[in-house]
Amino acid sequence: MKCPGLSDFQRLMISLENSLQLEDTKWKVPAFEGGTLKGTDISLTHYEQAILWIDEVTLRFRFYPETFGLAVSILNRILASVKVQVKYLRCITVTCLFLAAKTNEEDEIIPSVKRLAVQSGCMCSPAEILRMERIVLDKLQWDLCTATPVDFLNTFHAMLMSNLPHLFHDCLRMNPSSHLALLTRQLQQCMACHQLVQFRGSTLALVIITLELEKLTADWFPAITELLKKAKVDSAKFILCKELVDQHLGMLSPSNHVYVFIPAKRNPQAYHKQKSSACSPQPISRNMNPPIPGVLISAKKQTEEEIMETEFYDGFRYLYNEESVSEDRIIKEMISGKAQLQEARCPCPLLQSPGQDQ
């Protein structure tokens, strides 16, 4: 709700204070003991797989990131309040996502219970989901409103852009909305880590922003210090969370891509058998479809990640009024950015065809 006469930053401060109050009263997380959820047979792996499954179904139905955050928060509150057997975990998980979708999504996006049960692959019947929905609502006293890590991330990022409006001025492929989409993906990955469940959403969101801001500017410390004061985050917990998040994201980072250059005028298999330069020692499969000549071939995972980042980017553009960007500027940024990213990612020097040296 907008308050007339207040600046954007003042409205953000009001939103942050309201979220912090909700977090103080509603924040609950499951306690793990001896590799399992205390008092249950749910292991750490079961819990992490449940969060990752929520993320997968969220992308499949194109739900908002806020829906994912709310679904995880509802699930954590249930697991912290009730001793759940692992055989009911999937049904509870899909029910939490269904409740979050009905809270955040538009009516035309919300799937029917039957469609959700079939397309999500939850192995639950619509009747079971409806019965579990009533149980979850009763346990939470029909109060699903809470502040999620995704909510804090959106608020902190908007406050950061208010303090540092020229942060992405010199970045060709980065702007506020694409940056927020990147941070959101990192946050979702961290929310599936059982070691990070112990930290509040405000702390986790601020750590994600801090780690990314350190890579972008040397003036990150004053801006983060100001956010720490406003968010009233404990310094010791912040430092511990920062170390764990840095370690977790480092484990998820893909290894360096290996490229193989296929000359345009040579047969790929025959050329590979010769002792000419190649970045990969592994032989090229004979059953492989012939690659496009003169093109660098990279792993398929890179393309999937770029598509996922583009989808998230489109979801955040409206937050920063970036719909009016001209097509010429977009094309220019894509061409320039692609060249820089390719140079930065490829560990091999630029390769040339043997015939070009003559």
Rank of each mutant, 00 (worst) to 15 (best):
M132W: 11
E17P: 02
Q21E: 13
C241E: 06
K338F: 15
F261S: 10
N76M: 10
A158I: 00
L44C: 00
L167W: 01
Q188E: 15
A71I: 11
C122I: 05
A236N: 06
N256P: 06
C96L: 08
E305C: 04
L116G: 00
R345P: 01
Q21Y: 05
L130E: 07
D143K: 14
L140W: 10
C122S: 09
T155N: 15
L172C: 10
R317E: 13
V94A: 03
G39R: 11
P281E: 02
H179Y: 09
E106V: 12
S15D: 09
Q141E: 14
A278S: 14
L228I: 07
M191S: 08
F68K: 00
N256D: 12
S280Q: 04
E305A: 13
Q119Y: 13
E23N: 12
W220L: 02
D234G: 08
E17G: 03
S235C: 14
R286E: 15
D234Q: 05
N175F: 04
L70F: 11
E23I: 13
K273H: 15
S81V: 07
H248T: 14
K242Y: 12
F152S: 06
I208N: 05
E304H: 15
L130W: 08
K2F: 15
R286H: 09
L144D: 11
S326E: 03
L89E: 05
K230N: 06
A127T: 12
T58N: 15
N154F: 11
A236W: 06
Q21L: 10
L153K: 02
T217H: 01
S177D: 00
D55R: 05
M123P: 00
M191I: 08
L6P: 02
S112I: 02
Y320N: 01
G355L: 11
D219A: 14
Y313A: 14
H248S: 15
C241H: 06
G355A: 15
G69L: 08
G250K: 11
L216F: 00
T25L: 03
S162F: 12
A181N: 00
L70R: 06
P65A: 05
A236T: 12
A31Y: 09
V82D: 01
E327I: 01
L22F: 03
Q119L: 06
F98S: 11
I109T: 14
Q198P: 05
I135C: 07
V84T: 10
A71P: 05
L187P: 03
T203V: 13
L97E: 01
L99P: 07
K114G: 10
F316W: 10
H248M: 12
